[in-house]
Simulated assay, not measured.
Amino acid sequence: MIDSQKKWPWAAGVLAAFVMMIGVVAGFGTTASPHAAPSAQTPVIELVSEVSNAVAKARDYLAYTSFSKSGLIDQLEYEGFSSSDSSAAVNQLEADGGVNWYDQAAKKAREYREYSPFSRQGLIEQLEFEGFTSEQAVVYGADHS
């Protein structure tokens, strides 16, 4: 007959190793001084900020259609970004040179003309309604589309 005490000798070692791993993961057995000042725990993985996400979303939109500055901010807000994050994202795009509102006005004018005829004045008014400035609408939108 096999002695029951010799049947599972490795089980005690596995159990001891498991308990030690739990202790390490839980932070037991660390060498921190008992007098050390408490510190805030820093997450191991940094989360991407909402502004960064909004910038990425804005770039996605600008890759396939054109927007005025206010129109792009409104679209980001519609997507669920806060007003401040949306504005900060669009301002970041401007600062990085990632958007030229005059080019956007010309592209938007071309988009409109692709599906519907517009008079020059009607196109200017539509671009201004979209949020482009008068200069963007007239000089680049109507005259360069």
Rank of each mutant, 00 (worst) to 15 (best):
F18S: 15
Y140S: 13
S52L: 15
E111R: 09
V99T: 08
A32P: 04
T65Y: 08
K107F: 01
S39G: 07
A137T: 13
N91C: 04
L127Q: 05
Y115H: 15
V24N: 06
F118Q: 15
I22T: 07
E114M: 15
A89Q: 04
I22P: 02
A89H: 04
I124K: 02
S82F: 03
G122S: 08
S33E: 14
Y61N: 02
S52Q: 15
Y140H: 14
L93D: 05
I73Y: 06
Y115W: 14
V99H: 03
A105R: 00
G71V: 02
S84A: 05
T30I: 06
V138T: 14
Q126S: 14
E114P: 12
S49L: 10
T30G: 07
D103R: 03
A54H: 05
Q136K: 05
D96R: 06
P38G: 10
V48H: 12
Y61K: 01
A88P: 05
P43I: 03
A54R: 07
S4N: 12
S52C: 15
A40Q: 13
A16P: 00
T30W: 08
Q121W: 13
A142D: 03
A142W: 01
N53I: 12
P34L: 02
S84F: 04
A58S: 13
S83H: 10
S134C: 11
M1K: 15
Y64D: 11
F28M: 01
P34D: 03
Y115M: 15
Y64T: 10
V44F: 06
S68Y: 00
E50I: 03
A137G: 13
A12R: 10
G122P: 07
W8Q: 14
Y102C: 07
S70H: 00
H144I: 04
V55F: 09
S49I: 09
Q126C: 12
T133G: 04
A88G: 10
E77N: 11
D143T: 04
